[in-house]
Simulated scan of single mutants.
Amino acid sequence: MSSATSAAEDVCCKRLVGKVALVTAATAGIGLATAERLAQEGASVFICSRKQSNVDETVAALRSRGLEVAGCACHVGSAEQRRQLVEQCVKRYGGLDMLVSNAAVNPGAGPLAETPPDVIDKILDINIKSAVLLVQEALPHLLRRPGASIVFVSSVTAFNPAAPIAMYAVSKTALLGLTKGLAAELGPRGVRVNCVAPGIVPTKFSAALVQTPELAARQAEGTLLRRLGRPQEQAAAVAFLVSPDAAYVTGETLVVAGGMQSRL
């Protein structure tokens, strides 16, 4: 474990002790950083990824550092696997307080007007439809816990969908609306719903945007801070939104993008 990680754990507050979090697509990138941060703050965290081997490796790594983490393989596009995901989480930890919907795909690149139907179908199926259906699966359990919350992981590109990832960005725009709609429905029932919109964070998922030093530098120049983001910075935003510190925050999108343009 690096000294930087040790330092982060030393100063990490414990706002989530006794809570249970479910984080999708949590074996790499922002999802992994989020699972790690929530566990550092005291939550029991249940993770998933499409490959069981990735889940096993991640769980072992986080447990080796004394964090309470478990998980299973789940393709969020499968109704049966979504059901089993929530069921196993609740069976393992006795309930569910927080759902972080992070799973997303981007199977194609190019202008919106040239996006093939199969690419559109897959993006909307995983990035939007599956997110809604996962909420439906988790909601009965969330409603049983005071202070329950949901966080969607969107993208700063939601505010300005452009090639080469325009269709993906449009699906992330839809998450902003989903956040507002669900917050209005679930607020009176005691469940808060918020969203995080990350900027450009160098991960495997965003590799196409930062695949050369020149391209990465260009992306960094598009921020006011003149640098790219880090997964841990997105995780900190999620941790705030699910914590008691955000008890009066719902229906909001928190942009964590170094000052990139973020208005519709």
Rank of each mutant, 00 (worst) to 15 (best):
E114S: 15
E87Q: 15
N102G: 08
K122M: 08
L139E: 01
M167A: 15
V156F: 02
I123K: 00
L99W: 06
A148C: 00
L96I: 08
V156S: 11
V100Y: 07
V153F: 00
A162M: 13
G147A: 03
S130G: 01
R189C: 09
P198H: 12
R145H: 02
A197M: 09
I123A: 03
R83L: 10
M98H: 15
V135Q: 04
A148S: 15
L143R: 13
V132S: 04
L186S: 08
D97F: 03
L85G: 09
A104E: 12
P164N: 11
G108W: 14
V156I: 14
C195N: 11
A131I: 01
K122I: 05
L112K: 00
P116Q: 11
V151G: 05
L142W: 01
A131K: 07
E137I: 04
L134M: 03
D118Y: 08
I123L: 02
G177I: 10
G147E: 02
A104P: 10
N102L: 06
P198S: 14
T203P: 11
L176Y: 02
V153K: 01
G190Y: 04
M167Q: 10
E185H: 13
I200E: 14
S154P: 01
L85K: 15
E185V: 12
L133T: 10
L182E: 03
A174H: 04
